[in-house]
Simulated scan of single mutants.
Amino acid sequence: MRYPGGSSYYATPSMSIPPGVKWLLVSNVAIFLLYFIATIPQPGYGWLFSPFSLTPVKAVEGLQVWQVFTYLFLHDPNGFSHILFNMLALYMFGKTLEETWGTERFLRYYFGCGIGAGLCVILAGYLTGDPYTSTIGASGAIFGLLLAFGVLFPDSTVLMSFLFPIKAKYMVMIVGAITFLSIPKSGSGVSHVAHLGGMIVGYLLLKTSFGQRQLNRSRYTRESLLSRVTGAWREYRLRRARKKFQVYMSKQNRKDGPRVH
């Protein structure tokens, strides 16, 4: 599935890439290239990366708990579409969110969604009796970013599948519905549980006090220009009123003569 991308709104217009998104882009691409090279010729040394993919039985029974984090940096080495669309979505939506939230809070949200999606994959693996299938990719965290963008900037215009203009809030609804309806399908090679898990965890994070602070901050970013203009206008009117009052008092003082104590 192609990720929705592109936006007509940026919280802080800038051509530069913020440090959090830049670090994620560089690290994901670098690890993908190493993974890709290691699998030439097939299977090559791809097995070196298997301890870092997310396999429920290994993460739980083998106590390889780091997998809920490391799987976010691995992408399918047999093609470029997996990492390409993840990184495009990370840049298009993550850039705006990081400029709105700040690097620390953006990374906390990103990894919160990714790790939460990983926990959903583990839970689903045991519930369906298939805890041996491995999952890789940053899609869980990316879908969390899509959810956050749709919540914070619902009326901004994005390009669905990089082609069709649509409001962000409708894009999130459509993507969420498609993901949910795709979960029963097996054999597709796509972890729809991770996608939906990332969106659910992202929504829960936005509903916490952490998320409310981010919502308030995003509203401030969008309204700051108007607030500054109206504030400057009120200050100007106050100065004028104060000046008129001083002129009036000085006239009254001249009429009544000097004050004595």
Rank of each mutant, 00 (worst) to 15 (best):
G5Y: 04
R222Q: 13
A89L: 03
R222Y: 09
G46M: 04
S182D: 01
C113A: 12
S7T: 15
Y110K: 06
G189V: 01
F32V: 08
T128C: 09
A138I: 06
I31T: 08
P4S: 12
C120Y: 06
G202M: 06
L226A: 14
L34E: 00
K251E: 15
W101K: 07
R239L: 14
P258G: 02
A168V: 00
R242M: 10
A168E: 01
R108V: 11
S81A: 11
R234Q: 12
F164M: 05
S134P: 07
L204E: 04
Y35D: 14
I31H: 05
A89F: 03
L147Q: 13
V175M: 09
P258W: 10
N253D: 12
N216H: 14
V60F: 03
Y236L: 15
S188E: 14
V60M: 07
F111P: 01
I37K: 00
Y91F: 14
E223P: 00
K58G: 08
M87Y: 02
P13Q: 00
G187K: 05
P77G: 10
G231A: 05
I17W: 04
P13R: 00
W101N: 09
I122E: 07
M15T: 15
V172Q: 05
S227Q: 14
F36P: 02
P154F: 04
S53M: 13
L97H: 02
Y132P: 02
L48W: 08
S209I: 09
P165A: 06
S209K: 15
G150N: 08
N78W: 12
G198H: 02
V26P: 04
V57L: 06
V201Q: 05
S156M: 06
G116Q: 07
R228T: 13
W23H: 10
P4W: 07
G6L: 05
P77E: 08
T103A: 13
S161P: 00
D130K: 12
L33K: 05
S134M: 06
A194P: 04
Y9R: 09
T103L: 09
A148E: 07
A148R: 08
E99I: 01
D256H: 14
G94W: 01
G20D: 09
L107V: 02
Y170D: 01
L205Q: 10
Y132I: 01
L33I: 15
V68I: 13
R254F: 05
L84Q: 10
Q67H: 06
G102R: 04
T70R: 06
G79S: 11
Y71D: 06
G5W: 11
S182M: 13
G198D: 09
L24N: 04
Q214D: 01
I183R: 00
G211Y: 01
L196Y: 07
L215K: 15
Y91N: 04
L123I: 13
L107G: 02
I200H: 06
G20T: 10
F210W: 03
I31D: 07
V151N: 03
E61S: 08
T221A: 15
A148K: 00
